[in-house]
């Protein structure tokens, strides 16, 4: 027998309104746990992307002394050529003009920095991609000793540190999300139990006059589903907003490795959908557990 929608709407809405305090508590807990889950999932995507980037192409910047002689520069160039392609995949020379153009792009939001810098003050460098990413540290150590070299930089160290921090943060958040999720399920179960208790007379009359189990149970199950969905919707908005804020923050801050840690809107949207599905499932399962335990013919 199909349940009439007017009955379902009336009963589910009535239950939610009657238990408003517990309903709000369940929704808030659900929203918090699902936000944590959404955050973890987005962080996971960011870290995975960063790891791929890190493994796929680490760059090595060999900055030259401003007063390095042409002979020293040529010596470095020849050594780099001799190492290609066994140790070095590719290499390019970044002159003062190119370096200044890059600098302007990087600090486009900071006019004070742009004012004090001129092309003649920019260091020249060789920008190389090692054949094997894991050898980048060894190559850096080797070239930093060469005459005419001012400094050798590679982003691997920073990224490694970032990845380590993010991995720790991700694991901690995952544990917290799991804990809060269990709390959310318990709250949904408790809310539904209270709703069943508040309507025990009505439920007794329903049984008496021959209502089926589903007729009695479905409004309570929908109540849990609605709580899960509303909590998930809140979590979805928070997660999506947080992702946008994070993206704009890393995008404008030259000190952060913005590109690798960026998660696209599309990916964030998929994560949001997953969060909503989990919320609905948690709400429905919690209420199903409660009605199964407390409502039977």
């Amino acid at each position: 027998m199909a349940l009439p929608s007017s009955y379902l709407l009336r009963e589910t809405g009535g239950n939610l309104a009657r238990n408003i305090v517990m309903t709000v508590a369940a929704v808030v807990t659900m929203a918090v746990s699902l936000t944590a889950l959404g955050g973890v999932l987005i962080m996971r995507q960011a870290v995975n992307k960063a790891t791929v980037q890190y493994q796929g192409g680490v760059e090595l910047d060999i900055f030259l002394n401003p007063n390095a002689s042409a002979q020293e520069v040529n010596g470095i160039r020849q050594e780099l050529v001799s190492m290609t392609p066994t140790q070095i995949k590719k290499c390019s020379y970044v002159d003062k003009t190119a370096a200044f153009t890059e600098f302007r792009q990087m600090f486009s939001g900071q006019p004070d920095m742009l004012k004090v810098m001129t092309p003649s003050r920019m260091p020249t460098s060789f920008r190389c991609v090692p054949a094997k990413a894991q050898n980048v540290g060894q190559l850096a150590a080797e070239f930093s000793k060469q005459p005419g070299v001012y400094n050798v930089g590679y982003p691997g160290q920073e990224i490694k540190q970032w990845l380590a921090h993010f991995a720790t943060l991700r694991n901690v958040t995952l544990v917290v999300a799991g804990g809060v999720m269990i709390g959310a399920i318990a709250l949904v179960v408790n809310t539904i139990q209270l709703a069943i208790f508040a309507r025990r007379r009505e439920v007794a009359v329903m049984k008496l006059v021959g209502a089926t189990n589903w007729f009695i149970r479905v409004p309570f199950m929908l109540e849990g589903l609605v709580e899960g969905l509303v909590g998930a919707a809140v979590a979805f908005v928070i997660t999506f907003t947080a992702r946008n804020t994070f993206a704009s923050f890393t995008g404008t801050n030259p000190l952060l490795p913005s590109e690798p840690l960026n998660v696209s809107s599309h990916e964030a949207l998929l994560t949001g959908v997953l969060v909503v599905v989990v919320g609905a499932a948690v709400g429905a399962l919690g209420s199903a557990f409660a009605v199964r335990r407390h409502l039977s013919v």
Partner: peptide, 10 residues
């Protein structure tokens, strides 16, 4: 069976 009880009660 339990699912038939409501129909009995009608």
């Amino acid at each position: 069976p339990p699912w038939k009880v409501p129909y009995l009660r009608r």
